[in-house]
Amino acid sequence: MKRTILLIEDNEQNLYLTTFLLEQNGFKVVPARSGPEGIELAGRIQPALIILDIQLPQMDGYAVARELKQNPALKDVPIVAVTSYVMVGDRERALEAGCNGYIEKPINPDTFISQIEKYLKAQPAGEGSES
């Protein structure tokens, strides 16, 4: 069964790019174009991993990460921030909000999948991982 990745991203081109790249590599991608939509979908689909943009309308990525991590059903789902926020302190802020990983944009399509795989391995999805 294909692993599902929830992709929270508001920029259409980037959404398309990442979706294409992930699907080409055998993932199922569920897109969300805003934070609240992402949170709602996450509770419903229980993704294997969440890719989270930081600059989002209504609710920024940090707030989304915090809320996801507060949900006991979702707290073990790895979140990888993929963001254009690359200034000093941006990585720390993302990790502090609860993200497990941080990838700068622009992504490198040649290495992106292997970076994502790393977080999936580190935190194997599915039941029983905690017991």
Binding site: N11, Q13, N14, L17, T18, F20, L21, Q24, Q55, S84, Y85, V86, M87, E104, K105, P106, I107, N108, P109, D110
Partner: peptide, 18 residues
Amino acid sequence: MSHELRTPLNSIIGFTSL
């Protein structure tokens, strides 16, 4: 500026790479 330039660059570099 850095953020705004990176967003389109992500598409440009990403799609050409693909």
